[in-house]
């Protein structure tokens, strides 16, 4: 009987550790909302989300330029990181000889592990002066921020895409090669299409990381609240806004920064739901003989 009791309590204890992540998520949402809602009430949901002006000292809290800033930096970095990352993943999964792979895989792990402030500092000291010389202006720009982000999201895109490419059944490849297709034709017409859902997942995960990145962007983006006219204009991201102003914010300003956090959490949850949906679809299409 005592054995049974022990087993019972251990199972319940383990269940408790398992639901800790749900409890933590719930706490995060409750506390961010608790602090953020007062700002949404006093500013108004739509004038907060679509307001063009952010002037806390005048009581103006519109985050639209920063939403555009975040999306702009993210989009631009995906434009550079996705082609490079996917090619690199194909190289790793299909082409690279084993010694090269043994160098490249830890390289990508290291790139993923380097602290974001080191990337930001690198950008601040090297990239920004370089941009200033090449393109004029201050050098702090959306373009500089997206170059730094490209390097930061590259590891996620490469490793998740590589997993997707490697999980394609070998028979697909063999059948294509046996039909006389070249290796490139096989990659292009068989392996890549079969891996597309996994590759899209990698892009979504990279996008999540890019939207969430904070300090590295602060150091190179210039942080001016404006809708950028060109990629060489300075911008401010949603995350940067929180980190820059939290130090001295009080009253509605303080609440408005938490409300900015609410917007970020929602963006991430939407991305995750899309990723989960695609993941589900992937199993169906491949199992059902999509090829």
């Amino acid at each position: 009987m005592s054995k049974w009791n022990e087993e019972y309590f251990i199972e319940k204890g383990l269940l408790l550790t398992a639901i800790s992540s749900i409890i933590i998520i719930a706490l995060i949402i409750i506390f961010i909302f608790k602090e953020g809602i007062p700002a949404l009430q006093s500013v108004g949901f739509f004038s907060f989300l679509f307001g063009m002006e952010w002037a806390p000292s005048n009581g103006k809290f519109g985050i639209f330029p920063m939403i555009i800033g975040s999306l702009g930096i993210t989009g631009l970095s995906l434009l550079m990181a996705v082609p490079l990352g996917v090619f690199c993943a194909i190289f790793l999964a299909e082409i690279a000889p084993s010694p090269i792979r043994k160098i490249l895989e830890p390289t990508i792990q290291t790139l993923a592990g380097i602290p974001s402030v080191v990337y930001g500092f690198f950008g601040l000291v090297l990239l920004v002066p370089f941009m200033r010389e090449q393109f004029g202006g201050t050098g702090f720009s959306m373009f500089a921020a997206s170059i730094i982000l490209t390097v930061m999201i590259l590891p996620i895109i490469v490793s998740v895409s590589e997993d997707a490419l490697k999980s394609i059944p070998l028979e697909y490849k063999e059948a294509s090669l046996a039909l006389g297709a070249t290796h490139w034709q096989t990659i292009k017409n068989v392996i890549f299409p079969a891996a597309i859902p996994g590759i899209i997942t990698s892009v979504i995960l990279g996008m999540g990381r890019a939207i969430g990145e904070t300090l590295a962007i602060i150091m190179v983006a210039g942080n001016v609240v404006q809708i950028p006219g060109s990629i060489l204009d300075p911008v401010r991201a949603l995350t940067s806004n929180i980190a820059i102003e939290m130090g001295y914010a009080t009253g509605v300003h303080y609440n408005a920064l938490f409300a900015t956090g609410i917007v970020l959490v929602f963006m991430i949850i939407i991305l995750l739901i899309i990723a989960n949906y695609l993941h589900y679809k992937k199993k169906v299409t491949i199992g059902g003989g999509y090829l």
Binding site: I19, S21, L205, G212, L264, I268, L272
Partner: peptide
């Protein structure tokens, strides 16, 4: 929950 936790921006954890 775990997935969401791993992709929430670090500044939101800070908040």
């Amino acid at each position: 929950g775990a997935e969401t936790l791993s992709s929430i921006p670090s500044i939101v954890f800070g908040l």
